[in-house]
Amino acid sequence: MLRVLLITDTDKPIGDLRQALARLGYEMLAEVATPTALPRVVEEHRPDVVIIDTESPSRDTLEHLAVMNETAPRPVLMFSNDDDHQFIRDAVNAGVTAYLVEGLEPARLAPILEVALARFAHEEKLRNKLAQVESELADRKVIDRAKRLLMDRRKMSEQDAYATLRKRAMDQGMKVSEVARQLISMNDLLR
């Protein structure tokens, strides 16, 4: 059962949306927060999905959404009366998964939520893959720097320098990149 957090910055009643989601079997969190409380409430309640009901996304709403997306990303659906293309782009850049202009039928909520969840899961896989590739690239750079140090100081070939790092890593039960970082740190310390 998905846990849903509703956020609103409008004066209109949000009860219809809450009831429609509850009828679809979603667990509705008790708190209907304001956009300014978004990062704190998401951290405290850890919803599976966030739904924002707004007349038009304000800069404050988008800023708080961007902060939440950095610290605790979640799929976010935004219902709005504003169909301005720039607002939509700004909302998506801040972390909105699906932006819907008002007039939504409650019966369409479930498929829209499913699409938003699938899109978020796909983006999460891409983010994780990017983080992994960036980490591997950073490790590769560190290893290359350590190899250059060994090649310069010990007059080794690149292959011998790597073999030395690899052997040290195996002897110490560490990754080659960790040994390379230690070597670079020691070199920096001895300068």
Rank of each mutant, 00 (worst) to 15 (best):
E31T: 14
E63A: 09
E55K: 11
V179M: 15
R168F: 08
E136R: 05
M170Q: 14
S58V: 10
D139M: 07
A98T: 00
I143M: 06
N81W: 12
V133N: 06
Y162V: 10
D83Q: 05
Q19G: 12
G25W: 09
R140Q: 14
M156A: 01
D188Y: 02
Y162D: 03
A72K: 06
D48V: 00
G15K: 00
N93T: 07
S157A: 05
H64T: 04
A138L: 11
R166M: 10
E124L: 11
R59N: 08
V101W: 01
S56T: 15
G95K: 03
A138T: 15
L77Y: 10
L117C: 03
Q86M: 11
R140N: 11
A121R: 13
K129W: 08
K175P: 00
A72Q: 05
L137D: 04
R46D: 14
V179L: 04
E136F: 07
V142L: 10
A98N: 02
F120D: 04
R89C: 10
R191Y: 09
F79C: 03
G173R: 08
R181N: 11
A146P: 11
V142Y: 00
R18P: 02
D90N: 10
L17P: 08
S58Y: 13
I51C: 09
G103E: 09
E27D: 03
Y162Q: 11
D60A: 14
H85W: 15
N69M: 13
A72M: 05
D90Y: 01
A110L: 10
L149I: 15
I112M: 13
D84Q: 10
E63W: 02
L165Y: 03
H122T: 08
R145Y: 10
E114R: 07
L65R: 02
L65W: 06
P57Y: 09
T164E: 13
S80V: 06
L6M: 06
G95S: 12
A98Y: 05
R3H: 07
V92S: 02
L62N: 03
L5T: 07
I112G: 03
R140Y: 12
D188G: 03
L77P: 00
V50M: 13
R74V: 14
R3K: 14
E178R: 08
E105Y: 13
D188T: 14
G15N: 08
P47C: 14
E27V: 02
L77A: 13
T10G: 05
K155G: 04
I112E: 07
R148I: 03
H45R: 07
D84G: 06
R74W: 09
R127S: 02
L5S: 06
T61A: 08
A22H: 12
A161W: 00
L29M: 15
L5F: 02
G25E: 15
G173K: 01
V32H: 01
T164W: 02
L109T: 03
R119M: 07
E124F: 07
H122I: 03
K147W: 04
Y99E: 10
